[in-house]
Design a protein around this nucleic acid. Structure first.
Lengths: 326, 326
DNA sequence: TTGTACGCGTTATCAC
DNA sequence: GTGATAACGCGTACAA
């Protein structure tokens, strides 16, 4: 393996100088610098991240733990973030927790072992205090994404309350009488801490419209409660639906199809996740403003002030209004 | 930071013993082992990957470079792989090349610097020989995924030729007279090395059916040639379409909708990527057999023999036949 | 079975 | 601006 030593020898300088050229932390004369760069390129030298990380105690790596591999929305977030980080010389280490508390714990351990500078995660439980505290103690910046579970951590999230408020307003203004909210329940989360936002927005709109007739269904993540959803939808017969993500949205579409119901004639629809096929099907969707989200995340990562107040950064979503909510 | 030293002190043993307990490579007496494990848990000790990686020159990390963040199929592959690797104590380091040769080069450098044991990648060019050779020289196992670009590397891929042959047979047997193949062209790939497979399968089926009337459209990845596709489809008026991925599939659906054409009445359809919304829309799809693919990938990673013959592992896809091809 | 001691490749701290 | 050298935390040959 070609090491910094080989480069130094080839460029006729000390390893210290080579290191300086690589890290740009100190000045070297142009001629020497060029010689070193030539040697690096000639030998195909690549800095050993492990040696560098060990010595400097800092790595340009951000870790992220995502709770669900299949979520298209999350994948888009990941893609944007990775691209932005790479641009500034950072790497993104992505792990998946599969909505499982122990996987989350293990992921934290992996990332701590990997000396990441920050950990972004979508919490799947509110019981992993210990490992989070350990990460913090090691100087790792920990940020919860989308789910505001730990009150001592900063949060970057979509403003779900606003989104649901907006969606419900739209539906009610278009004459909905029996609105239904399909919410998300996170398994292994003793007290659900996300859904309230959505319910609150929904509820606020209802009361502003002087409306009391409604239904809420909490969709579990793991136990495939499709049958249960079908029962509830058939039983309640909503004339408007707000669905918390595109995957559940597809389930709703299946049920409607089976029932022979059409949108917007029989049921008005608003889905979370403004993705390609949802647009194609002319379904009104909550656009979670991915670019803004990414920007907010980066800003939070790299330009955090020193004050220790906990922050809750909410990204305002935008409704993409289409035929399904007419 | 709590190091192996602290654990050793707390357990009243030497650091060597602690190391042995952690790595399981040598025997330690049960009592001592327990004492060490207690100390580890008490102190919240986590092995420093960087020190460990530096010293042992080997890390339990597989690197993967994916060319397109938005590709649902790739994301599913990633999810499965990460899960399987984690189960056996490995991490997956995911990077994205954005169909860009230089990004691919940088990704390779990152992964080499990170001492990964293997690099899996979906090649975006056939010009990155140098860095690949460097990786190989360092003992890194390099595998190309889905695209057979470098003839000295093992390949794991979907059997695209078979998939297209199968799909074309289905369409022709159902009476298609003007079949069209929407293929993928990889930008920055001087001579397209993937599409031929699909075209060959398509072509083989055609000739077996004594058919000469057909059209092929090569869909570029970056330049958004949606308009071009529309022109070609409108000009040729196919009565059957095979579309190389679900994203292009949606474009095709838009064009058909605009044209007022219905499937299967006016146009028969087969899409690559058997995902949820494609199934919902009753579109016949090429199911790429994700489980089998994952299994093959793992087997290739961990049970490769010592012989140096280059392998091309093809995963047989399965058609999910639905109404769109009737 | 256990402990001692060295070195992995790099960066930081001194000198000059 | 440059060079020598001591750490960083861990794994392992070797000795005990």
């Amino acid at each position: 393996m070609v090491t910094i030593k080989d480069v130094a020898r080839r460029a006729n300088v000390s390893i210290a100088t080579v290191s300086r050229v690589i890290t740009h932390k100190s000045c070297v004369s142009p001629e020497v610098s060029e010689r070193v760069l030539d040697a690096i390129s000639d030998l195909g030298y690549i800095t050993d991240s492990y040696a560098s990380g060990l010595r400097s105690k800092t790595t340009k790596t951000v870790g992220i733990i995502i709770s669900n591999v299949k979520n298209v929305f999350y994948n888009n977030v990941l893609g944007n973030l990775e691209k932005s980080l790479r641009k500034i010389g950072y790497s993104l280490f992505t792990l998946y927790s599969a909505e499982n508390a122990e996987e989350e714990l293990n992921s934290f351990k992996s990332l701590i072992a990997s000396k990441v500078s920050s950990i972004i995660f979508t919490p799947v439980t509110n019981t992993n205090h210990k490992i989070i505290k350990l990460a913090l103690k090691r100087g790792i910046d920990v940020i919860q994404l989308f789910r505001n579970v730990y009150d001592y951590l900063d949060t970057v999230a979509i403003d779900d309350e606003y989104a649901c408020y907006d969606a419900a307003n739209l539906l009610l203004d278009h004459g909905a009488k029996r609105p239904m909210l399909i919410n998300v329940r996170y398994e292994s989360m003793p007290n659900d801490v996300v859904s309230p936002d959505r319910f609150n927005g929904f509820s606020k709109s209802l009361s502003e419209h002087g409306h009391t007739e409604y239904k809420v269904f909490d969709y579990g993540v793991i136990s495939k409660p499709f049958e249960k959803l079908r029962e509830e939808v058939l039983a309640y017969s909503p004339d408007a639906l707000i669905v918390s993500n595109s995957s559940f949205g597809l389930d709703v579409l299946k049920i409607l199809k089976e029932k022979g119901q059409r949108y917007p004639q029989d049921v008005k629809l608003v889905f979370f996740d403004d993705i390609d096929w949802v647009a194609y099907l002319e379904i009104t969707a909550v656009n979670q403003n991915l670019d803004l989200l990414n920007k907010a995340l980066l800003e939070r990562l790299f330009t955090r002030g020193d004050d220790s107040t906990v922050r809750y950064i909410k990204i305002p979503p935008v409704l993409s209004v289409r035929a399904s909510s007419d």
